[in-house]
């Protein structure tokens, strides 16, 4: 008898789900909106004046954990737009078949040249199509929707608000948050010490945070 009661209770749960609206969508017809920060594929951007933003500094190639980026360059050339001499990447290849979408290349880019796109549909019929050459990457700028992140935004998100510095033009911004930048001491994971909030001001002087703070003038460049 008890089995029947439990079975009815389980059926009641199923009936509740039966009456709920479906959570799935018919994929090719309906595409669920992706998050703003979604990372799917890559694009290389142009500057506002139409020049290529990539300067071929090789930072993304160096930080890539799976070594999928290969860049030829940097080469100094005259810009076709401004006529000034600047460095370019001669060739830029990103192998999407081995990419792990970690976003580190976007984070380190100093000129915000490489960004991720948030189209979900990356599959293709051949492996060659997944090797993003420079032409494809620049075409993705127009063909695909950009994800939120670029180098400046990601760096700014992780930046520490500057501690109050006298004579600094941004002093009023850093004034309130400068104190918040010094965190309460983290408990040691192996041997946890009780968090002593009173120790925070003393730890400020020789804190490991101090040498890594952004140099003066770094903040002004950011919007």
């Amino acid at each position: 008898m008890g089995h029947f009661i439990d079975a009815f209770k389980a059926f009641a749960s199923v009936a509740k789900s039966f009456l709920r609206p479906p959570t799935t969508v018919q994929f090719p017809d309906v595409i669920r909106p992706r998050a703003e920060r979604y990372r799917a594929s890559f694009a290389l951007l142009h500057e506002e004046n139409g020049d290529e933003a990539c300067i071929g500094c090789l930072q993304c190639e160096r930080i890539c954990p799976s070594k999928v980026i290969s860049i030829k360059g940097p080469a100094k050339r005259d810009s076709p737009i401004t006529g000034k001499k600047r460095s370019y990447a001669d060739d830029f290849t990103l192998d999407l078949t081995a990419c792990i979408f970690c976003e580190l290349c976007v984070q380190v880019c100093p000129t915000d040249a490489i960004v991720m796109t948030r189209e979900q549909e990356t599959p293709s019929y051949s492996r060659e199509e997944l090797v993003l050459t420079m032409t494809k990457l620049y075409a993705n700028e127009k063909n695909k929707t950009r994800a939120w992140g670029d180098g400046t935004k990601l760096m700014e998100m992780q930046a520490i608000p500057k501690p109050p510095v006298p004579l600094s033009p941004t002093g009023e911004r850093a004034g309130g948050e400068g104190k918040a930048a010094v965190p309460a001491p983290a408990p040691g994971p192996a041997a946890p010490a009780p968090a002593a909030a009173a120790a925070a001001p003393e730890a400020k002087a020789d804190s490991p945070l101090t040498p890594t703070l952004s140099p003066a003038g770094e903040r002004e460049k950011l919007p």
Partner: peptide
């Protein structure tokens, strides 16, 4: 709580 999410500037080079 409010405050920074990283204890330092993220590194650019490994």
């Amino acid at each position: 709580p409010e405050g920074p999410i990283n204890s330092g500037k993220p590194v650019k080079l490994p």
